[in-house]
Design a protein around this nucleic acid. Structure first.
Length: 678
DNA sequence: CTTACCCTAAACAGCA
DNA sequence: CTGCTGTTTAGGGTAA
C-alpha cells in the first residue's frame, strides 16, 4: 500500500501512477524558501511555476480520476451488497438512493433533505452510508475542480506579478518571489490538508471491508514537544489569518472554507442532533455555509451567529441577540440534555485537538521536507508506523477537576507508549484474528453484534469514546477472541486497554468493574490453571441472561430515535461533528470504518441482533445497553499509580457533570501497558 | 412503583 | 507491607 503522508492523500492507495504524479508534484514544488540560488532568474522561477502548475494539474486530474474510480467501486459495492441501483450515469455518478431522494438531489443533498431522510427512516443505514459516500464523492469532485480552477488563477496571478516585478530591482524581486512562493506553498499545504482530510474521511467510508488490512497510523506529535506544537500552531494560524486579512491569496483559501462548510451541513443535520429532530426545530435550518464562511457577526457570543443559535444541533432562529439569550436560557439551561451535549462537544473538541496536532505535525514535516531536501526520504515514510492516539491524552481537554496528581511516571511528552504501539500491531492482528472472530461468530451464531464490536473496535481503539457495550459483553468478547477462549485477569485488562482508548485511563475504576463483573456473573467461570487462574465464558449462562437483558435493547432503539439518552447520541453526535469538520476521526488510516454509516449500521445491526434474539432466542454477543446510560456523579478520588496502566483523569463522560472546567494543560500520557501476555 | 440490569465505589480476604 | 486477585455489598441510574 502506498500512501503518501504528504497531506494530499486523495491519491491514496488506489493508483500507482497517481502516486508517482503525486510525488512528482511534491518534488516539483519550489524550494524557494530554501536557500535562494545565486542566480535565481525570473525565468527559472516561471519555469518552476510552470512545472508546478503542470504537476498540480496532473495531481488534480488524477485525483478526479480516483474519485471517479471510487464512485465506480462504490457502485459495484452496492450492487454486491444487494442495493438497487436504479441507473447509471457516466457523466454524473448516479445517486443510488430511493427515487424520492434521488429525484430531489441532482447533486448534493441539502441538509434538510438529509434530515428528512434520516427522520423518515426511508433509508437503511447502509443506504445512508452509501448516500453519504456519494455525497462526499460529489463534493470532493466539485472541490477538486474548484481547486484546480483556483490553482490556475493563482498561477496566472503569480506570473503576472512576476512579470510586473521584473521592473523592480533584482534583489527585491527575488525576496518578493520567494515570499510569495512560500506563502503559496503554505496555502497549498493547507488546502492539501483539507483535501487530505476529506479524502481520508471518504476512505474511512470506503474501507468497510472487515478483511481489509488497516493502514498504518500517523504519529501524532511524535518527537514534538507541546511547546513546539503550540509554536507551530501559532505560525500556522497567524499565517492563516494574515492571508485571510490581506485577502491576497484568498482564492486559495476559499477552497478550504468551502470544503469545510459544504461538507458540514449535510452531515451535521444528518446524524447529529437528536435535539433538533425531537424538537422539530430543524425546519428552520440555516445553511452553515454562511455561518462558517465569516464569523464577524458571531463575535458577540460564540453560540450565536447569523441569527441562529449555534448550540450544537440547535440552529434555532433567533431574531436578535436578546431573543437568542432568551432561547439560550430556556432551551439550553443546565439540564441533563445540555450536560450531555456539552460532553459531546468536549469530546468533539478533544478529537479536533488531536487531529489538529496530528496535522500540525504533518505540516511541519512537510515544511521540513521542503526546507531540507536531505530529510525527504525520512519525512514521508517515517510516520507510517506510528500511532497517533497518544497525544489524545495529552491534548485532551478532558474534564477532571482533580487531574493533577495522576501524572504518570512518564509525564514526558509524546512517547509512543506501549499501549499505542501494540494498538497498531493489534490493528493488523485484528484482521488476522478476523477468521477467529468469524469462527466463533458462526459458532455462536452471533455474527452481527460480535462483528460489530470487532468492526467498531477500530474506532474505539483510537477514539476515547466509551464503547456502548457492557462490561460483561466486553469481557466475553475478550475471552472469546483469545485463541484458547480463556484469559487471565491481566490479559483481560490488556485487551481492554488495547482495544479501547477509553480504557486507557481510569484504570482503577474499570478494572474494578471488570473484576466485579467476572465475579458477579455466572457466565464467567474461573478455571484454575497450571500457571494460575484463567477466566472462561459459560456461553449457556451468558445466553440465559440475554432474554432479560434484551429488554433493554428496544430502549436503545428508542434512545436512538428519540435521543433521550446520551450514549448513542453521544457517539452519533461525535461522529457527526467529526464528519462536520471533515475530520477523519484522526486515525482514519487505521480505522476501518469509523464513519457514521458504519456506526449507524453497527448500532442498527446490534439492534437487529437484539430483536432477533428477542424473537428467536438466538445468541448475541453484545448487550444493547450502554454503560453510558448511567451517568453518575463521580466521586473523584486519588487513584494509586498503576505501573502497568495508564492513569488519567476520570473520563470526560463521567466527570463532565461536575466540571466544565477543562484542563488543557495536563498531560494525560498513557503509561506503557504490559501487553504481550498472551 | 417495582423489578431487572448496569455501573461505580469500596470493603475485605487470600496470596505472592 | 504492598499489590494483585477475587468476592461481596451498597447505592445510584435507567428503562420496561
Amino acid at each position: 500500500m502506498f500512501q503518501c503522508v504528504f497531506s494530499s492523500s486523495v491519491l491514496q492507495p488506489h493508483s500507482t501512477s497517481c502516486l508517482f504524479k503525486h510525488l512528482f508534484y511534491h518534488s516539483a514544488t519550489p524550494a524557494s524558501q530554501k536557500q535562494p540560488e545565486p542566480i535565481y532568474s525570473k525565468k527559472t522561477e516561471i519555469q518552476r511555476q510552470t512545472v508546478r502548475a503542470h504537476s498540480v494539474k496532473l495531481f488534480i486530474f488524477s485525483a478526479l480520476q480516483v474519485a471517479r474510480q471510487l464512485l465506480l467501486q462504490q457502485q459495484q459495492q452496492q450492487q454486491v451488497s444487494g442495493l438497487k441501483s436504479p441507473k447509471r450515469n457516466d457523466k454524473q455518478p448516479a445517486l443510488q438512493v430511493p427515487v424520492s431522494v434521488a429525484m430531489m438531489t441532482p447533486q448534493v443533498i441539502t441538509p434538510q433533505q438529509m434530515q428528512q431522510i434520516l427522520q423518515q427512516q426511508v433509508l437503511s443505514p447502509q443506504q445512508l452510508q452509501v448516500l453519504l459516500q456519494q455525497q462526499q464523492a460529489l463534493m470532493l469532485q466539485q472541490q477538486l475542480q474548484e481547486f484546480y480552477k483556483k490553482q490556475q488563477e493563482q498561477l496566472q496571478l503569480q506570473l503576472l506579478q512576476q512579470q510586473h516585478a521584473g521592473k523592480q530591482p533584482k534583489e527585491q524581486q527575488q525576496v518578493a518571489t520567494q515570499q510569495l512562493a512560500f506563502q503559496q506553498q503554505l496555502l497549498q499545504m493547507q488546502q492539501l490538508q483539507q483535501q487530505h482530510l476529506l479524502s481520508l474521511q471518504r476512505q474511512g467510508l470506503l474501507t468497510i471491508q472487515p478483511g481489509q488490512p488497516a493502514l498504518p497510523l500517523q504519529p501524532l506529535a511524535q518527537g514534538m514537544i507541546p511547546a513546539e506544537l503550540q509554536q507551530l500552531w501559532k505560525e500556522v494560524t497567524s499565517a492563516h489569518t494574515a492571508e485571510e486579512t490581506t485577502g491576497n491569496n484568498h482564492s486559495s483559501l476559499d477552497l478550504t472554507t468551502t470544503c469545510v462548510s459544504s461538507s458540514a451541513p449535510s452531515k451535521t443535520s444528518l446524524i447529529m442532533n437528536p435535539h433538533a429532530s425531537t424538537n422539530g426545530q430543524l425546519s428552520v435550518h440555516t445553511p452553515k455555509r454562511e455561518s462558517l464562511s465569516h464569523e464577524e457577526h458571531s463575535h458577540s457570543h460564540p453560540l450565536y451567529g447569523h441569527g441562529v443559535c449555534k448550540w450544537p444541533g440547535c440552529e434555532a432562529v433567533c431574531e436578535d441577540f436578546q431573543s437568542f439569550l432568551k432561547h439560550l436560557n430556556s432551551e439550553h439551561a443546565l439540564d441533563d440534555r445540555s450536560t450531555a451535549q456539552c460532553r459531546v462537544q468536549m469530546q468533539v473538541v478533544q478529537q479536533l485537538e488531536l487531529q489538529l496536532a496530528k496535522d500540525k505535525e504533518r505540516l511541519q514535516a512537510m515544511m521540513t521536507h521542503l526546507h531540507v531536501k536531505s530529510t525527504e526520504p525520512k519525512a514521508a515514510p517515517q510516520p507510517l508506523n506510528l500511532v497517533s492516539s497518544v497525544t489524545l491524552s495529552k491534548s485532551a481537554s478532558e474534564a477532571s477537576p482533580q487531574s493533577l496528581p495522576h501524572t504518570p511516571t512518564t509525564p514526558t511528552a509524546p512517547i509512543t507508549p506501549v499501549t499505542q504501539g501494540p494498538s497498531v500491531i493489534t490493528t493488523t492482528s485484528m484482521h488476522t484474528v478476523g477468521p477467529i472472530r468469524r469462527r466463533y461468530s458462526d459458532k455462536y451464531n452471533v455474527p452481527i453484534s460480535s462483528a460489530d464490536i470487532a468492526q467498531n473496535q477500530e474506532f474505539y481503539k483510537n477514539a476515547e469514546v466509551r464503547p456502548p457495550f457492557t462490561y460483561a459483553s466486553l469481557i466475553r468478547q475478550a475471552i472469546l477472541e483469545s485463541p484458547e477462549k480463556q484469559l487471565t485477569l491481566n490479559e483481560i485488562y490488556n485487551w481492554f486497554t488495547r482495544m479501547f482508548a477509553y480504557f486507557r485511563r481510569n484504570a482503577a475504576t474499570w478494572k474494578n468493574a471488570v473484576r466485579h463483573n467476572l465475579s458477579l456473573h455466572k457466565c464467567f467461570v474461573r478455571v484454575e490453571n497450571v500457571k494460575g487462574a484463567v477466566w472462561t465464558v459459560d456461553e449457556v449462562e451468558f445466553q440465559k441472561r440475554r432474554p432479560q437483558k434484551i429488554s433493554g435493547n428496544p430502549s436503545l432503539i428508542k434512545n436512538m430515535q428519540s435521543s433521550h439518552a446520551y450514549c448513542t447520541p453521544l457517539n452519533a453526535a461525535l461522529q457527526a461533528s467529526m464528519a462536520e469538520n471533515s475530520i477523519p476521526l484522526y486515525t482514519t488510516a487505521s480505522m476501518g470504518n469509523p464513519t457514521l454509516g458504519n456506526l449507524a449500521s453497527a448500532i442498527r445491526e446490534e439492534l437487529n441482533g437484539a430483536m432477533e434474539h428477542t424473537n428467536s432466542n438466538e445468541s448475541d454477543s453484545s448487550p444493547g445497553r450502554s454503560p453510558m446510560q448511567a451517568v453518575h456523579p463521580v466521586h473523584v478520588k486519588e487513584e494509586p499509580l498503576d505501573p502497568e496502566e495508564a492513569e488519567g483523569p476520570l473520563s470526560l463522560v463521567t466527570t463532565a457533570n461536575h466540571s466544565p472546567d477543562f484542563d488543557h494543560d495536563r498531560d494525560y500520557e498513557d503509561e506503557p501497558v504490559n501487553e504481550d501476555m498472551e
